[in-house]
Design a protein around this nucleic acid. Structure first.
Lengths: 205, 205
DNA sequence: AAAAGAAATTGACACTATATCAACTTCTTT
DNA sequence: AAAGAAGTTGATATAGTGTCAATTTCTTTT
């Protein structure tokens, strides 16, 4: 029969599921990735140990995956805005603005990113998720580079658009992690300014 | 008494130690970091399980640390060569050359770097070792940037030398890992050329 | 050269975490 | 109300780490 809304078993299942996710959110932020165990999550969620595995067969990885996904969506929005560049000056303003947005998000989600960083090192699946994310960004930047090249705005020479995009993204990424891990005391504006200038002067003539 | 050369106990100890390191070298390369266990190493080295811990109290981390240290020494040599830059053209040649050396080493030690990358994600101590390595490089590059700025060779604007150095190093680092992990099919020359041009055009006027 | 002591080896053990599963409870359908 | 499906549960198998008391091997002391 079709009574999706009122099937008590399904509802109980959903309830357990979200209790586990909520417990995960709390505990991962508190203790990091490695030091949070299924046993701790189950306890905090007040569900049995095995319940975590029936809802999340991938165990810890899968639970964390779902939690971090929410945060990554915010970052994706930066990459999803299309824009066109008509001059070097345009590019400087846009590039600097994008880096600033990116680093501001890093500050906002510092704690979560710290745990994410740990998880990337440990879990293959989480690592892949981040790689996909990077690829999307690199592709996005590469398009703009190609446009600038087509318009004759760039230096002459043998530029590989992906490597050029890498200069911007990978440096920005590294500073994102530095912010998350509290490994820099530089202001996000200092970083954005220097990086944007290097990128724009590097590419545009 | 002072007979360091002929103390049989010490010699036996040294022998065990190097048998364990040798076994580690083989097994880490074969199976990666996580999937190599102390138990496997001890077996291959034909020593008892506990022996590994008497010689390397830090366990797997310490064993791997010693193994990777040898390889890192080769990389350090690139950073240890001092040079002075007098023009943009100079800089392009030197920068490109250094990136090429760096990436060639990555190709040479591809397999070991792959395992190293895994270990960095898992082990705090190994990670710190890599961070120290990075810092040394960044400092080295920053000195040259400062020199170029003092000589009035660079663009005007608010450059943070460390961020500028980061543009060069972090992008290079990322491609080093890509090579190690077989995640790029770009030629090392393509990468060096594009990155060197971006860096030099970005910084020098 | 025998006894005492120091160095190195060893595998059993305690510990911790993961993933699985058979028994169980709760709810739905026949 | 019987059958069956969905979800829960903790005991269990498994696998790795790090520790330690017992043991062997070699050196120093008496």
């Amino acid at each position: 029969m079709e009574r999706e809304q009122t099937d008590k078993r399904k509802m109980r299942g959903e309830s357990s599921k979200s209790k586990i996710i909520e417990a995960g959110k709390t505990l991962f932020l508190e203790n990091g990735y490695k030091d949070t165990t299924i046993s701790m999550i189950s306890k905090q969620a007040k569900t049995g140990y095995g319940t975590a595995y029936t809802h999340f067969p991938g165990g810890k990885e899968e639970i964390f995956f779902i939690i971090i996904d929410e945060i990554l969506k915010e970052f994706y929005q930066i990459a999803s805005v299309a824009y066109h560049v008509n001059s070097k000056e345009d590019s400087l303003i846009l590039t600097r603005g994008n880096i600033e947005m990116f680093l501001k998000l890093a500050i906002k989600h510092q704690q979560a990113l710290k745990v994410f960083h740990e998880a990337i090192g440990v879990s293959h699946i989480i690592n892949e998720k981040w790689e996909e994310f990077i690829e999307k960004f690199i592709k996005r930047i590469s398009i703009n580079i190609q446009q600038a090249m087509d318009k004759g705005l760039t230096h002459h020479g043998d530029f590989d658009p992906e490597v050029v995009a890498g200069v911007l993204f990978y440096t920005g990424e590294k500073y994102m992690w530095k912010i998350a891990l509290n490994k820099t005391d530089k202001d996000y504006r200092t970083i954005s300014e220097s990086l944007a200038q290097m990128y724009v002067n590097g590419l545009y003539k």
